[in-house]
């Protein structure tokens, strides 16, 4: 039997402290203690990627990270991808591309998929289709057959390049 710990996190740029069991899953801390429900649970075993977040800048499956390993960490969730996104003002280029290219259908994998795509484009700003297929292979989507997700990521990559601003609109 343990006690709850004071878990300090920088969440999407803001300092937060919550009380959490050391072995609580980061996913549950995000959804229940931080109230950020854009991070989804699809499988609870690191297979589907719906719970993907950035922990200290690295993409992780938040269902596989115990709270005890997050103290003092910097956390970014879908809600923080574009600071003004939730009020509808501005989307991250990857979100914009998913919206325009049909990358989201039922939407449940979308937050994790968007973060995996952001991660991929950080590592590999101008990927080819095979690199996108490999880069997103930890995020399962049952609706799309991945075609439009891949198109979204390729379009987002182009929009970020100097002459590709209009490519997102397809």
């Amino acid at each position: 039997m343990s006690e709850k710990m004071a878990l300090k996190l920088q969440v999407n740029g803001a300092e937060r402290t919550v009380q959490a069991w050391p072995m609580a899953r980061l996913l549950d801390v995000i959804r229940e203690d931080l109230g950020l429900t854009g991070t989804k649970e699809g499988c609870g075993e690191g297979e589907c990627g719906a719970c993907s977040v950035f922990l200290n800048g690295k993409l992780v499956n938040s269902c596989l990270v115990p709270a005890v390993q997050c103290n003092g960490a910097k956390l970014e969730t879908i809600e923080g991808v574009s600071p003004t996104s939730t009020d509808g003002a501005q989307l991250h280029p990857v979100q914009e591309a998913f919206l325009r290219c049909g990358g989201a259908q039922c939407g449940i994998c979308t937050p994790g998929m968007v973060l995996a795509a952001v991660d991929l484009l950080k590592r590999c700003p101008d990927p080819d289709e095979e690199q996108v297929r490999d880069g997103l292979s930890g995020n399962l989507c049952r609706c799309t057959g991945y075609v439009k997700i891949i198109d979204s990521v390729l379009a987002a990559a182009k929009s970020a390049s100097p002459d590709g601003a209009k490519a997102v609109a397809k």
Partner: peptide
């Protein structure tokens, strides 16, 4: 409802 889905809202 695409915007709500890509933002996690």
């Amino acid at each position: 409802e695409g915007r709500a889905k890509v933002t996690g809202a």
